[in-house]
Write a protein that binds this DNA or RNA. Structure first.
Lengths: 218, 218
DNA sequence: CCAATAAGTAACATCACGCAACTAATGTCA
DNA sequence: TGACATTAGTTGCGTGATGTTACTTATTGG
Protein backbone atom coordinates (compact mmCIF):
# COMPACT_ATOMS: atom_id res chain seq x y z
CA UNK A 1 0.00 0.00 0.00
CA UNK A 2 3.02 2.23 0.09
CA UNK A 3 6.03 2.04 -2.15
CA UNK A 4 6.47 -0.74 -4.66
CA UNK A 5 3.37 -1.78 -6.50
CA UNK A 6 4.89 -4.34 -8.74
CA UNK A 7 8.47 -5.43 -8.93
CA UNK A 8 8.46 -7.20 -12.25
CA UNK A 9 11.91 -6.57 -13.63
CA UNK A 10 12.59 -5.39 -17.15
CA UNK A 11 10.24 -2.43 -17.04
CA UNK A 12 10.85 1.18 -16.16
CA UNK A 13 9.81 2.56 -12.80
CA UNK A 14 8.03 5.81 -12.09
CA UNK A 15 9.47 7.40 -8.96
CA UNK A 16 7.87 10.21 -7.03
CA UNK A 17 9.81 12.98 -5.32
CA UNK A 18 7.01 14.76 -3.52
CA UNK A 19 8.18 18.07 -2.07
CA UNK A 20 6.83 20.42 0.58
CA UNK A 21 8.21 23.31 2.56
CA UNK A 22 8.07 22.71 6.28
CA UNK A 23 9.75 24.91 8.82
CA UNK A 24 11.62 26.86 6.15
CA UNK A 25 13.24 23.77 4.67
CA UNK A 26 12.44 21.61 1.67
CA UNK A 27 11.12 18.20 2.63
CA UNK A 28 10.56 15.01 0.65
CA UNK A 29 7.98 12.33 1.36
CA UNK A 30 9.57 8.96 2.16
CA UNK A 31 7.93 5.65 2.94
CA UNK A 32 8.92 4.17 6.28
CA UNK A 33 7.52 0.66 5.92
CA UNK A 34 10.38 -1.85 6.01
CA UNK A 35 13.13 -0.21 3.96
CA UNK A 36 12.82 3.51 3.41
CA UNK A 37 12.21 4.53 -0.18
CA UNK A 38 10.57 7.04 -2.45
CA UNK A 39 7.13 5.98 -3.64
CA UNK A 40 7.45 4.24 -6.97
CA UNK A 41 5.52 2.05 -9.34
CA UNK A 42 6.22 -0.04 -12.35
CA UNK A 43 5.21 1.61 -15.60
CA UNK A 44 3.49 -0.85 -17.91
CA UNK A 45 3.34 -0.59 -21.66
CA UNK A 46 -0.15 0.84 -21.54
CA UNK A 47 0.48 3.37 -18.79
CA UNK A 48 0.99 7.09 -19.18
CA UNK A 49 4.02 7.99 -17.03
CA UNK A 50 2.58 11.26 -15.77
CA UNK A 51 -0.75 9.64 -14.95
CA UNK A 52 1.08 6.97 -12.97
CA UNK A 53 3.02 9.68 -11.13
CA UNK A 54 -0.13 11.65 -10.33
CA UNK A 55 -1.79 8.51 -9.03
CA UNK A 56 1.30 7.81 -6.91
CA UNK A 57 1.08 11.31 -5.45
CA UNK A 58 -2.62 11.03 -4.71
CA UNK A 59 -2.04 7.67 -3.09
CA UNK A 60 1.05 8.64 -1.10
CA UNK A 61 -0.09 11.99 0.29
CA UNK A 62 -3.85 11.66 0.25
CA UNK A 63 -4.37 14.41 -2.30
CA UNK A 64 -3.24 15.27 -5.81
CA UNK A 65 0.02 17.10 -6.35
CA UNK A 66 -0.45 20.83 -6.83
CA UNK A 67 2.22 20.85 -9.53
CA UNK A 68 4.41 18.25 -11.14
CA UNK A 69 7.28 17.97 -13.60
CA UNK A 70 9.47 15.26 -14.93
CA UNK A 71 13.03 14.95 -13.74
CA UNK A 72 16.06 13.36 -15.34
CA UNK A 73 15.76 9.69 -16.19
CA UNK A 74 18.30 7.56 -14.37
CA UNK A 75 19.68 4.12 -15.08
CA UNK A 76 22.79 3.98 -12.94
CA UNK A 77 23.01 2.64 -9.40
CA UNK A 78 20.63 0.45 -7.52
CA UNK A 79 16.88 0.92 -7.47
CA UNK A 80 14.64 -0.65 -4.80
CA UNK A 81 12.49 -2.23 -7.51
CA UNK A 82 15.51 -3.28 -9.56
CA UNK A 83 14.10 -1.28 -12.47
CA UNK A 84 16.59 -0.91 -15.30
CA UNK A 85 15.32 2.62 -15.92
CA UNK A 86 13.65 5.08 -13.56
CA UNK A 87 11.60 8.13 -14.56
CA UNK A 88 11.42 10.55 -11.64
CA UNK A 89 8.58 12.99 -11.23
CA UNK A 90 8.98 15.96 -8.91
CA UNK A 91 5.69 16.89 -7.30
CA UNK A 92 4.71 19.69 -5.00
CA UNK A 93 2.09 20.05 -2.27
CA UNK A 94 1.28 22.71 0.29
CA UNK A 95 2.88 22.83 3.73
CA UNK A 96 -0.20 21.65 5.59
CA UNK A 97 -0.27 18.20 4.02
CA UNK A 98 0.45 15.64 6.72
CA UNK A 99 2.25 12.40 5.96
CA UNK A 100 -0.15 9.41 6.12
CA UNK A 101 0.66 6.23 8.01
CA UNK A 102 3.82 4.61 6.74
CA UNK A 103 5.13 7.87 5.31
CA UNK A 104 7.22 10.69 6.71
CA UNK A 105 8.56 14.04 5.57
CA UNK A 106 12.33 14.28 5.57
CA UNK A 107 14.49 17.35 4.90
CA UNK A 108 16.34 16.97 1.60
CA UNK A 109 19.49 17.96 3.40
CA UNK A 110 19.09 15.09 5.85
CA UNK A 111 17.61 12.21 3.92
CA UNK A 112 17.37 8.78 5.48
CA UNK A 113 19.17 5.85 3.94
CA UNK A 114 17.70 5.44 0.46
CA UNK A 115 18.68 3.25 -2.44
CA UNK A 116 21.43 5.20 -4.24
CA UNK A 117 19.41 5.86 -7.38
CA UNK A 118 16.49 7.21 -5.40
CA UNK A 119 18.85 9.27 -3.29
CA UNK A 120 20.20 10.86 -6.46
CA UNK A 121 16.69 11.53 -7.73
CA UNK A 122 15.67 13.20 -4.45
CA UNK A 123 18.79 15.34 -4.39
CA UNK A 124 18.17 16.59 -7.92
CA UNK A 125 14.60 17.65 -7.12
CA UNK A 126 15.63 21.18 -6.22
CA UNK A 127 17.39 21.53 -9.57
CA UNK A 128 14.20 20.47 -11.33
CA UNK A 129 12.14 22.95 -9.33
CA UNK A 130 14.61 25.73 -10.18
CA UNK A 131 14.46 24.82 -13.83
CA UNK A 132 10.72 25.37 -13.95
CA UNK A 133 10.05 28.07 -11.37
CA UNK A 134 10.45 30.93 -13.87
CA UNK A 135 7.83 29.54 -16.22
CA UNK A 136 5.50 27.76 -13.79
CA UNK A 137 4.03 28.91 -10.48
CA UNK A 138 6.03 26.39 -8.47
CA UNK A 139 6.48 28.66 -5.47
CA UNK A 140 2.75 29.32 -5.24
CA UNK A 141 1.98 25.61 -5.34
CA UNK A 142 4.25 25.10 -2.36
CA UNK A 143 2.00 27.46 -0.39
CA UNK A 144 -1.58 27.26 0.84
CA UNK A 145 -4.22 28.98 -1.27
CA UNK A 146 -3.85 32.09 0.90
CA UNK A 147 -0.47 33.19 2.16
CA UNK A 148 1.47 36.22 3.33
CA UNK A 149 4.02 37.93 1.15
CA UNK A 150 6.72 37.09 3.66
CA UNK A 151 5.88 33.41 3.27
CA UNK A 152 6.03 33.74 -0.50
CA UNK A 153 9.39 35.46 -0.27
CA UNK A 154 10.71 32.71 2.00
CA UNK A 155 9.73 30.08 -0.55
CA UNK A 156 11.47 31.98 -3.31
CA UNK A 157 14.55 32.34 -1.14
CA UNK A 158 14.52 28.63 -0.51
CA UNK A 159 14.17 27.78 -4.18
CA UNK A 160 16.81 30.28 -5.30
CA UNK A 161 19.17 29.53 -2.45
CA UNK A 162 19.78 33.18 -1.60
CA UNK A 163 18.24 36.06 0.30
CA UNK A 164 16.00 38.60 -1.43
CA UNK A 165 15.28 42.20 -0.61
CA UNK A 166 11.81 42.76 0.76
CA UNK A 167 10.98 45.99 -1.03
CA UNK A 168 12.34 44.84 -4.38
CA UNK A 169 10.55 41.54 -4.11
CA UNK A 170 7.20 43.20 -3.47
CA UNK A 171 7.61 45.80 -6.17
CA UNK A 172 8.46 43.15 -8.76
CA UNK A 173 5.54 41.04 -7.58
CA UNK A 174 3.13 43.94 -7.85
CA UNK A 175 4.39 44.82 -11.31
CA UNK A 176 3.66 41.26 -12.45
CA UNK A 177 0.01 41.29 -11.31
CA UNK A 178 0.36 37.79 -9.90
CA UNK A 179 -1.39 38.09 -6.54
CA UNK A 180 -4.58 39.64 -5.25
CA UNK A 181 -5.08 40.75 -1.64
CA UNK A 182 -7.80 39.18 0.48
CA UNK A 183 -9.64 40.91 3.29
CA UNK A 184 -8.02 38.70 5.90
CA UNK A 185 -4.99 39.29 8.03
CA UNK A 186 -2.96 36.84 10.04
CA UNK A 187 -1.42 37.53 13.42
CA UNK A 188 1.53 35.19 13.88
CA UNK A 189 2.24 35.94 17.53
CA UNK A 190 4.59 38.85 17.80
CA UNK A 191 4.83 41.64 15.27
CA UNK A 192 2.36 43.34 13.02
CA UNK A 193 -0.29 41.10 11.38
CA UNK A 194 0.32 40.29 7.73
CA UNK A 195 -2.22 40.65 4.97
CA UNK A 196 -3.18 37.44 3.20
CA UNK A 197 -2.91 37.14 -0.56
CA UNK A 198 -4.10 34.73 -3.19
CA UNK A 199 -2.41 33.61 -6.40
CA UNK A 200 -4.48 35.34 -9.09
CA UNK A 201 -2.44 36.10 -12.21
CA UNK A 202 -3.95 38.70 -14.48
CA UNK A 203 -3.29 39.23 -18.16
CA UNK A 204 -0.35 41.53 -18.63
CA UNK A 205 0.81 43.42 -21.67
CA UNK A 206 3.51 40.99 -22.88
CA UNK A 207 6.41 41.59 -20.56
CA UNK A 208 9.04 41.53 -23.27
CA UNK A 209 12.13 41.61 -21.14
CA UNK A 210 15.59 41.14 -22.46
CA UNK A 211 17.67 37.99 -22.67
CA UNK A 212 19.13 36.39 -19.57
CA UNK A 213 22.85 36.31 -20.04
CA UNK A 214 23.48 36.60 -16.34
CA UNK A 215 23.08 32.92 -15.59
CA UNK A 216 25.52 31.75 -18.24
CA UNK A 217 28.91 31.20 -16.70
CA UNK A 218 30.10 28.06 -18.47
CA UNK B 1 23.34 1.69 -39.82
CA UNK B 2 20.83 4.45 -39.36
CA UNK B 3 17.84 4.39 -37.11
CA UNK B 4 16.83 1.31 -35.22
CA UNK B 5 19.62 -0.67 -33.68
CA UNK B 6 17.58 -3.24 -31.90
CA UNK B 7 13.83 -3.65 -31.85
CA UNK B 8 13.48 -5.98 -28.95
CA UNK B 9 10.21 -5.02 -27.41
CA UNK B 10 9.76 -4.42 -23.70
CA UNK B 11 12.66 -2.01 -23.35
CA UNK B 12 12.79 1.75 -23.51
CA UNK B 13 14.12 3.53 -26.54
CA UNK B 14 16.53 6.46 -26.62
CA UNK B 15 15.48 8.90 -29.33
CA UNK B 16 17.62 11.67 -30.69
CA UNK B 17 16.28 15.07 -31.75
CA UNK B 18 19.41 16.60 -33.23
CA UNK B 19 18.93 20.30 -33.94
CA UNK B 20 20.76 22.83 -36.07
CA UNK B 21 20.00 26.29 -37.37
CA UNK B 22 20.06 26.43 -41.15
CA UNK B 23 18.88 29.42 -43.11
CA UNK B 24 17.41 31.10 -40.06
CA UNK B 25 15.19 28.15 -39.20
CA UNK B 26 15.51 25.32 -36.73
CA UNK B 27 16.14 21.97 -38.41
CA UNK B 28 16.04 18.39 -37.15
CA UNK B 29 18.05 15.46 -38.45
CA UNK B 30 15.83 12.71 -39.87
CA UNK B 31 16.79 9.37 -41.35
CA UNK B 32 15.57 8.81 -44.89
CA UNK B 33 16.23 5.09 -45.29
CA UNK B 34 12.96 3.28 -45.81
CA UNK B 35 10.56 4.97 -43.41
CA UNK B 36 11.57 8.37 -42.13
CA UNK B 37 12.34 8.47 -38.43
CA UNK B 38 14.42 10.11 -35.74
CA UNK B 39 17.56 8.15 -34.87
CA UNK B 40 16.86 5.87 -31.96
CA UNK B 41 18.28 2.89 -30.13
CA UNK B 42 17.13 0.42 -27.58
CA UNK B 43 18.39 1.14 -24.11
CA UNK B 44 19.53 -2.01 -22.36
CA UNK B 45 19.66 -2.53 -18.63
CA UNK B 46 23.39 -1.83 -18.56
CA UNK B 47 23.32 1.27 -20.74
CA UNK B 48 23.58 4.85 -19.59
CA UNK B 49 20.83 6.76 -21.43
CA UNK B 50 22.89 9.88 -22.04
CA UNK B 51 25.85 7.83 -23.27
CA UNK B 52 23.56 6.04 -25.70
CA UNK B 53 22.22 9.38 -26.91
CA UNK B 54 25.70 10.81 -27.38
CA UNK B 55 26.72 7.74 -29.32
CA UNK B 56 23.59 8.12 -31.45
CA UNK B 57 24.51 11.71 -32.19
CA UNK B 58 28.08 10.87 -33.08
CA UNK B 59 26.87 8.11 -35.31
CA UNK B 60 24.08 10.05 -36.97
CA UNK B 61 25.86 13.32 -37.70
CA UNK B 62 29.49 12.26 -37.84
CA UNK B 63 30.50 14.26 -34.80
CA UNK B 64 29.52 14.61 -31.14
CA UNK B 65 26.69 16.88 -30.17
CA UNK B 66 27.87 20.27 -28.95
CA UNK B 67 25.25 20.25 -26.22
CA UNK B 68 22.53 17.87 -25.13
CA UNK B 69 19.65 17.66 -22.71
CA UNK B 70 16.93 15.21 -21.90
CA UNK B 71 13.40 15.87 -23.06
CA UNK B 72 10.09 14.61 -21.76
CA UNK B 73 9.65 10.86 -21.65
CA UNK B 74 6.76 9.68 -23.79
CA UNK B 75 4.73 6.49 -23.77
CA UNK B 76 1.67 7.42 -25.79
CA UNK B 77 1.24 6.92 -29.52
CA UNK B 78 3.17 4.72 -31.89
CA UNK B 79 6.94 4.45 -31.92
CA UNK B 80 8.87 3.03 -34.90
CA UNK B 81 10.63 0.53 -32.62
CA UNK B 82 7.43 -0.29 -30.74
CA UNK B 83 9.17 0.76 -27.55
CA UNK B 84 6.76 1.03 -24.62
CA UNK B 85 8.68 4.05 -23.35
CA UNK B 86 10.85 6.56 -25.20
CA UNK B 87 13.44 8.85 -23.66
CA UNK B 88 14.14 11.75 -26.03
CA UNK B 89 17.42 13.63 -26.00
CA UNK B 90 17.63 17.03 -27.64
CA UNK B 91 21.06 17.61 -29.13
CA UNK B 92 22.62 20.56 -30.83
CA UNK B 93 25.29 20.96 -33.51
CA UNK B 94 26.64 23.88 -35.49
CA UNK B 95 25.12 25.02 -38.78
CA UNK B 96 27.95 23.66 -40.92
CA UNK B 97 27.30 20.01 -40.10
CA UNK B 98 26.13 18.25 -43.24
CA UNK B 99 23.72 15.35 -43.10
CA UNK B 100 25.47 12.05 -43.92
CA UNK B 101 24.08 9.55 -46.43
CA UNK B 102 20.67 8.32 -45.39
CA UNK B 103 20.00 11.42 -43.32
CA UNK B 104 18.52 14.83 -44.04
CA UNK B 105 17.86 18.08 -42.22
CA UNK B 106 14.20 19.05 -42.06
CA UNK B 107 12.70 22.27 -40.71
CA UNK B 108 10.78 21.61 -37.48
CA UNK B 109 7.90 23.56 -38.97
CA UNK B 110 7.77 21.21 -41.97
CA UNK B 111 8.60 17.77 -40.70
CA UNK B 112 8.19 14.74 -42.94
CA UNK B 113 5.84 11.97 -41.99
CA UNK B 114 7.14 10.56 -38.72
CA UNK B 115 5.69 8.07 -36.30
CA UNK B 116 3.37 10.10 -34.07
CA UNK B 117 5.44 9.68 -30.92
CA UNK B 118 8.60 10.81 -32.66
CA UNK B 119 6.73 13.69 -34.23
CA UNK B 120 5.67 14.83 -30.78
CA UNK B 121 9.23 14.54 -29.50
CA UNK B 122 10.59 16.60 -32.38
CA UNK B 123 7.97 19.28 -31.91
CA UNK B 124 8.77 19.65 -28.23
CA UNK B 125 12.48 20.12 -28.90
CA UNK B 126 12.21 23.90 -29.02
CA UNK B 127 10.50 23.89 -25.63
CA UNK B 128 13.39 21.88 -24.22
CA UNK B 129 15.94 24.27 -25.72
CA UNK B 130 14.06 27.24 -24.26
CA UNK B 131 13.96 25.59 -20.86
CA UNK B 132 17.76 25.36 -20.75
CA UNK B 133 18.98 28.36 -22.71
CA UNK B 134 19.14 30.63 -19.67
CA UNK B 135 21.39 28.29 -17.74
CA UNK B 136 23.34 26.64 -20.55
CA UNK B 137 25.07 28.15 -23.61
CA UNK B 138 22.63 26.54 -26.03
CA UNK B 139 22.68 29.44 -28.47
CA UNK B 140 26.46 29.37 -28.68
CA UNK B 141 26.47 25.63 -29.37
CA UNK B 142 24.17 26.23 -32.33
CA UNK B 143 26.87 28.46 -33.85
CA UNK B 144 30.36 27.82 -35.20
CA UNK B 145 33.27 28.51 -32.87
CA UNK B 146 33.54 32.00 -34.33
CA UNK B 147 30.46 34.01 -35.23
CA UNK B 148 29.18 37.54 -35.67
CA UNK B 149 27.00 39.23 -33.09
CA UNK B 150 24.22 39.47 -35.64
CA UNK B 151 24.31 35.70 -36.07
CA UNK B 152 24.19 35.25 -32.31
CA UNK B 153 21.24 37.61 -32.06
CA UNK B 154 19.42 35.72 -34.82
CA UNK B 155 19.82 32.47 -32.90
CA UNK B 156 18.46 34.06 -29.76
CA UNK B 157 15.54 35.47 -31.70
CA UNK B 158 14.82 32.03 -33.10
CA UNK B 159 14.97 30.39 -29.67
CA UNK B 160 12.88 33.08 -27.99
CA UNK B 161 10.46 33.45 -30.85
CA UNK B 162 10.59 37.24 -30.88
CA UNK B 163 12.71 40.09 -32.17
CA UNK B 164 15.40 41.70 -30.05
CA UNK B 165 16.85 45.18 -30.13
CA UNK B 166 20.38 45.33 -31.45
CA UNK B 167 21.80 47.89 -29.05
CA UNK B 168 20.23 46.36 -25.96
CA UNK B 169 21.31 42.88 -26.98
CA UNK B 170 24.92 43.92 -27.37
CA UNK B 171 25.05 45.93 -24.17
CA UNK B 172 23.66 43.00 -22.15
CA UNK B 173 26.08 40.64 -23.87
CA UNK B 174 29.04 42.86 -23.10
CA UNK B 175 27.98 43.25 -19.49
CA UNK B 176 27.94 39.47 -19.13
CA UNK B 177 31.52 39.00 -20.36
CA UNK B 178 30.46 36.03 -22.44
CA UNK B 179 32.26 36.67 -25.74
CA UNK B 180 35.70 37.81 -26.77
CA UNK B 181 36.43 39.53 -30.08
CA UNK B 182 38.82 37.94 -32.55
CA UNK B 183 41.00 39.83 -35.01
CA UNK B 184 38.99 38.59 -37.97
CA UNK B 185 36.15 40.24 -39.81
CA UNK B 186 33.69 38.73 -42.22
CA UNK B 187 32.36 40.47 -45.31
CA UNK B 188 29.03 38.91 -46.18
CA UNK B 189 28.53 40.61 -49.52
CA UNK B 190 26.83 43.94 -49.08
CA UNK B 191 27.14 46.07 -46.00
CA UNK B 192 29.88 46.69 -43.51
CA UNK B 193 31.96 43.65 -42.51
CA UNK B 194 31.15 42.16 -39.11
CA UNK B 195 33.69 41.40 -36.44
CA UNK B 196 33.97 37.76 -35.44
CA UNK B 197 33.60 36.73 -31.81
CA UNK B 198 34.27 33.61 -29.80
CA UNK B 199 32.39 32.20 -26.83
CA UNK B 200 34.72 32.88 -23.92
CA UNK B 201 32.84 33.34 -20.64
CA UNK B 202 34.83 35.04 -17.92
CA UNK B 203 34.20 34.89 -14.21
CA UNK B 204 31.83 37.60 -13.15
CA UNK B 205 30.99 38.97 -9.75
CA UNK B 206 27.85 36.90 -9.03
CA UNK B 207 25.16 38.64 -11.04
CA UNK B 208 22.49 38.36 -8.39
CA UNK B 209 19.52 39.54 -10.34
CA UNK B 210 16.02 39.59 -9.03
CA UNK B 211 13.29 37.02 -9.46
CA UNK B 212 11.61 36.44 -12.80
CA UNK B 213 7.95 37.05 -12.30
CA UNK B 214 7.51 38.24 -15.86
CA UNK B 215 7.22 34.75 -17.36
CA UNK B 216 4.49 33.57 -15.02
CA UNK B 217 1.14 34.03 -16.66
CA UNK B 218 -0.81 31.01 -15.46
C1' DC C 1 30.28 59.64 -56.62
C1' DC C 2 25.93 58.26 -54.73
C1' DA C 3 22.40 55.01 -53.08
C1' DA C 4 21.64 50.83 -50.60
C1' DT C 5 22.82 47.77 -47.02
C1' DA C 6 24.40 46.09 -42.86
C1' DA C 7 27.49 46.69 -38.64
C1' DG C 8 28.35 49.17 -34.84
C1' DT C 9 27.88 53.30 -31.53
C1' DA C 10 25.97 57.27 -28.90
C1' DA C 11 22.66 59.76 -26.46
C1' DC C 12 18.68 60.06 -23.76
C1' DA C 13 14.55 58.88 -21.22
C1' DT C 14 12.61 55.51 -18.51
C1' DC C 15 12.37 51.72 -15.61
C1' DA C 16 13.94 48.29 -12.32
C1' DC C 17 16.73 47.22 -8.56
C1' DG C 18 19.56 47.55 -4.17
C1' DC C 19 19.73 50.03 -0.16
C1' DA C 20 18.44 52.50 3.78
C1' DA C 21 15.30 54.70 6.45
C1' DC C 22 10.90 55.18 7.88
C1' DT C 23 5.94 54.09 9.64
C1' DA C 24 2.50 50.72 11.47
C1' DA C 25 0.69 47.16 14.36
C1' DT C 26 1.22 43.71 17.49
C1' DG C 27 3.25 41.12 21.77
C1' DT C 28 6.47 41.14 25.90
C1' DC C 29 8.14 42.58 30.04
C1' DA C 30 9.41 45.58 33.68
C1' DT D 1 1.23 51.72 31.40
C1' DG D 2 5.04 52.64 28.94
C1' DA D 3 9.44 51.28 26.78
C1' DC D 4 11.14 47.78 23.82
C1' DA D 5 11.39 44.03 20.52
C1' DT D 6 9.46 42.09 16.47
C1' DT D 7 7.44 41.72 12.12
C1' DA D 8 4.80 43.94 8.19
C1' DG D 9 4.67 47.27 4.92
C1' DT D 10 6.05 51.73 2.51
C1' DT D 11 8.85 55.59 0.71
C1' DG D 12 12.67 57.92 -1.29
C1' DC D 13 16.95 57.97 -3.60
C1' DG D 14 21.04 56.64 -6.26
C1' DT D 15 22.61 53.60 -9.64
C1' DG D 16 22.48 50.63 -13.28
C1' DA D 17 19.98 48.24 -16.99
C1' DT D 18 16.83 48.56 -20.82
C1' DG D 19 14.05 50.55 -24.89
C1' DT D 20 14.18 53.81 -28.46
C1' DT D 21 15.97 56.78 -31.80
C1' DA D 22 19.31 58.50 -34.36
C1' DC D 23 23.76 58.59 -35.88
C1' DT D 24 28.43 56.92 -37.80
C1' DT D 25 31.26 53.47 -40.32
C1' DA D 26 32.35 50.31 -43.92
C1' DT D 27 31.31 47.76 -47.81
C1' DT D 28 28.80 46.50 -52.59
C1' DG D 29 26.70 47.96 -56.73
C1' DG D 30 25.19 51.08 -59.98
Amino acid sequence: MSAAKSRRSGAASIDLVLCAVRGGRLHVLVTTTSAQALPFARCGAEDDPEAVARELARHASGQPAAWMAQGTVMAAKRHPGDAPLSVPFVGVVGPAVEAPRGMAWHPVQALPSLAPRQKAMAESALTTLRLHMDAAPVAFRLLPSVFTLSELQQVYELLLGRRLHKASFRRALQAAYLVAPTDDWRSEGRGRPAQLFRYAPRRRHAGHRSVRFDLLGR
